[in-house]
Amino acid sequence: MTQAVKGNGRPIIARDLVRNFGRTVAVDHLSFEVRAGEIYGLLGPNGAGKTTTVKMVSGLLPPTQGEVEVFGFDPLNQPIEVKSRIGLVPEDHILYESLTPREFFDFIASIRQLDQWETKQRITSLVDAFEFRDHYDKPIAALSHGNRQKASILSAIIHDPPLLVLDEPFSGLDARTVRVFKDILNIHLENGGGILFSSHILEVAESLCDRIGIIDDGKMVAEGTVDELREMVKAHGSLEEIFLRAVQQDTEVAETVQALRKALAKENKR
């Protein structure tokens, strides 16, 4: 993680971020920061603005208002500095579908001008850890969902970036790979790296994240450790309950389930 020391400042500082798509406000005055050595979870229901935030942080989408710093660099005006320090696992599999993983990783290593010997050792260990060797020479288009996700993760960590930006990274992975990947994330944190973790799978977020930001309709509705959030929203139990209380959906969900129970009850059909 040699690039981490080159940058100055925290992995991510987002201040007052706004992103509009026409009249729709996808992200609404969002502020948060990701510190070195922590996993910051960005949680929210579908359409809350998580992916838009990830794109703005990664320099793929300019904010309408506000600013982001990645290790002190502005993703908009210094995209090369930012992109060379980020490993991004996007929600969609954005890969060169017609290339094989071998060709794809050769390409990435060449573009990032990585050391051939070191990177080969690294990618060999990762491929074996992910049990990916059998798929190394198949076109990405021919891989299953889970194997594409593995390719996406490998492409994000091949260059050992100081910041990982992960948007639903466990999607489609089997239990073994999830375990391996969690260990890789822990090693990354031990080495002083930072992680922005966006998800709507609360169990994973609860077990992984040091701090959590809950967003709804593009706004930050609660932020802190799980204990702090529990205190903040006066909820007990799991992160799921905290989350539903934070986004004010706990009552609505209870009513919906009640109505559904009535509608699906077998007695109604007779």
């Binding site: 060709e103 050769d106 060449s110 573009i111 001008q113 990585l114 050391d115 051939q116 074996d128 060797r133």
Partner: peptide, 21 residues
């Protein structure tokens, strides 16, 4: 199944090779 390998080339060559592939 072939052994895992990695070939780092110049940026321009990598872009060219990728486009052709």
């Amino acid at each position: 199944v072939r052994p895992v390998s990695l070939k780092v080339s110049r940026v321009g060559v990598a872009l060219l090779r990728k486009d052709i592939r």
